[in-house]
Simulated scan of single mutants.
Amino acid sequence: MSMKLILQGPQADQATLERLAAMAAPASSTMLHARALRADGFDFTPDLKAQVEAAAFDAGVDATFIDAGRLLSDFKLVAMDMDSTLITIECIDEIADMQGLKPQVAAITEAAMRGELGFSESLTRRVALLEGLPVEALGRVYEERLRISDGGEAMLQSAQAAGLKTLLVSGGFTFFTERLKTRLDLDFTHANLLEAQDGKLTGRVVGGIVDAEEKRRTVERVCAQLGIDTRQAIVMGDGANDLGMMSVAGLSVAFRAKPVVRAQADVALNFSGLDGLLAILA
């Protein structure tokens, strides 16, 4: 099976991309746009992959080896994590900042994302620190701090135009996923529900926690609902709690991810925006 190599980076120039492509000695190369190049007709080996990826990383370039014929239209669903994937922030860290507790909460978040702490335990501990915070603080985080990651809207629009359904599955909170569902015209969302009484957070989550296993089950449920195999899904994430749902996907994408996630993903976008997926599946 022939492979293609996609090289891309937000600061990459043509000379850099061509220099990296030359390491594979391709029969042909084509500029996809000013910051992306496709190389074809080379002998793929694991050693070549490792060498090109290392050199590309040092140059601030994403290098992706993938089956030459793979297209966006081969898939039926794109599923995304929310915090630090579809959006640039960790919502719970920013909520905690309203309480002056961001360092404590962020430290727990980081430990969970690296896989050093179970997600359910970490979420319970973090949410408990939010007790007494006015619910209106969530609105301030959404309006003042939440931003879509680079290329996120372009990626979603292209996926939707190609007929893919969209799923946002998050260990974060429904307050944010529901607003993003409307804003971005997403088909499905699933997240944790924060409990509130008298206009203030209680420090608890209502119902079960959306942890790594629940994320995987959600992708499986949505695929079953759509009548597709999970191998027809693209799954994008950044943390250890995304590995379960990424493992059942036809294409797993690590976005600005922790090393443990990059090591297990099919594709790693370390520098490009989420729309880097479009060049890979063009």
Rank of each mutant, 00 (worst) to 15 (best):
M1A: 13
K4C: 09
I6C: 09
L7Q: 03
P10C: 05
Q11C: 11
A12Y: 01
A15T: 14
R19I: 00
M23L: 15
P26E: 00
L32C: 10
L37F: 06
D40Y: 00
D43Q: 14
T45A: 11
D47P: 11
L48K: 11
A54Q: 15
A55S: 15
A59Y: 03
M82P: 01
D83Y: 02
T85L: 04
T85R: 03
I95Q: 04
G100V: 08
L101Y: 09
P103E: 00
Q104W: 00
I108R: 03
T109A: 09
T109Q: 10
E110S: 13
A112V: 13
E116Q: 15
L117V: 12
T124W: 00
A128I: 03
G139P: 10
V141Y: 03
R145M: 12
G151S: 09
M155D: 02
G163N: 10
L164S: 03
T166F: 03
V169A: 05
V169R: 01
S170Q: 04
S170K: 03
G172I: 03
F173W: 08
F176M: 09
T177Q: 04
R179G: 05
K181S: 12
R183V: 00
L184Y: 09
T189S: 12
L193K: 15
L194T: 03
A196M: 12
Q197Y: 08
L201M: 11
V210I: 15
K215C: 11
R217F: 04
V219T: 05
E220D: 07
L226C: 05
G227P: 10
G227V: 09
D229N: 14
A233T: 10
V235S: 04
M236R: 02
G237W: 01
D238F: 04
N241K: 05
L243P: 05
S247T: 08
A249T: 06
A249S: 14
L251D: 06
V253Y: 03
A257W: 05
K258S: 10
V261N: 08
A263Y: 07
Q264F: 00
F271W: 13
L274Y: 05
L274F: 09
G276V: 06
L278V: 11
L278N: 06
